[in-house]
Nucleic acid binder design. Structure first.
Lengths: 210, 210
DNA sequence: GTCTATATAACGATAGAC
DNA sequence: GTCTATCGTTATATAGAC
């Protein structure tokens, strides 16, 4: 319930601006590297106003972090719980992951790095969307193995492989560009190619062939 | 040339202690999160002494970072330049990587994250040990493809896959444990299993089968 | 070389006017 | 709500005694 509804107050539009700026700064600089002043500048407002909307840097960060995790994890988990053949799930997963991340290249690295600041907070945020997935996945892998179509594999390893192939090229983009000598455009093209290739590779990984 | 060589001064043994402590702190906290006081405490010395040996936090960090990159990258690149069948190289790579990283679990995440502070510095450090590898690798992949034994694949994608499968589980260990619910011991066991599995997976990835 | 003590600057946070 | 001005703390870095 709002205080008075007679005007179409677009709700703290400033708050939205702050969150957006904080996101930009926290994503690239991390919690420790980020400066409240920089966030304020980015939002075109004053430092004091940050503390008015969010009480502290810690709370502002938590808002950004929660949002980041919720944007990255649940969609990706959800897609693995749909009722579909294994490889359809994989294709859906890769599409979902790339769609999210191509527009936020710093997102995976941010989540992975800021994780260890407060691991229990992370667990809270993603509670629920957890083990469900792995059970269904393991069942499909086992069925495929029994019918001789798939090689036996642990669902955890399968999932870790899928995630590694998708996420690492984004997390380590800087280092990879440095060793490969590719510029931004070239590297983005390489990433785009992986979007189709990863499902093929995951198929080869588990399909029996002899 | 040393000043006077008559005594076996073990060269700044304090300096070694500082570097070791700085390593510990920088690895887990990153540059921005690290405190000079904490490094001094860890080394059992005074803050001022840090500035005596290294002029600034920046320089101390650079020493640690350079050392980290040199410990992680060149061995791994070197092993891919040996004259051996493709899959022997892969096995050697995985062994080399895991041997280095199991004893320094924070190393990959540290390098990947601190990368973007000074990308050009990173390029300097690893200069030389670069493109050589990819040429030889591409040649082997092409030969295998022509003789019908391998599926066609870009050397860059092959290498990125190999590195992703090896590195990501370490870089994102925190997040992976959180979603899987595994404790440290269980997760370490999962990692150890991958040491044998990754070469098998990489084989399946490129071997032709029909 | 190693210490204590201190300078200097930056940051997060608050007070108070408007 | 939004601003200016400022407090209190903490960080890097230096000066100087031993």
């Amino acid at each position: 319930m709002r205080k008075t509804m007679n005007t179409v107050h677009q709700e703290p539009e400033t708050q939205r601006r702050i969150l957006c700026s904080a996101e930009k700064v926290f994503y690239r600089q991390g919690y420790d590297g980020a400066r409240m002043q920089e966030i304020a500048d980015e939002a075109g407002i004053n430092k004091a106003l940050l503390h008015y909307y969010f009480r502290s840097k810690e709370r502002l960060f938590d808002a950004v972090f929660s949002d980041a995790v919720l944007r990255l994890v649940p969609p990706v988990f959800a897609v693995m719980n749909i009722n579909a053949p294994l490889m359809d799930k994989v294709r859906a997963f890769v599409d979902a992951y790339f769609s999210t991340v191509v527009n936020n290249p710093f997102l995976p690295g941010f989540v992975v790095h800021e994780m260890h600041r407060n691991p229990s907070r992370f667990s809270e945020i993603i509670q629920g969307s957890r083990l469900f997935m792995l059970q269904g996945l393991q069942r499909q892998l086992d069925e495929g193995a029994e019918s001789g179509k798939l090689v036996p594999m642990e669902a955890e390893q399968f999932m870790l492989n899928l995630l590694s192939l998708c996420a690492f090229p984004f997390v380590a983009a800087g280092a990879m560009q440095a060793v490969s000598g590719k510029n931004d455009t070239e590297y983005q093209q390489l990433l785009e190619e992986r979007r189709q290739l990863i499902p093929e590779w995951m198929t080869r990984l588990v399909e029996r062939h002899e």
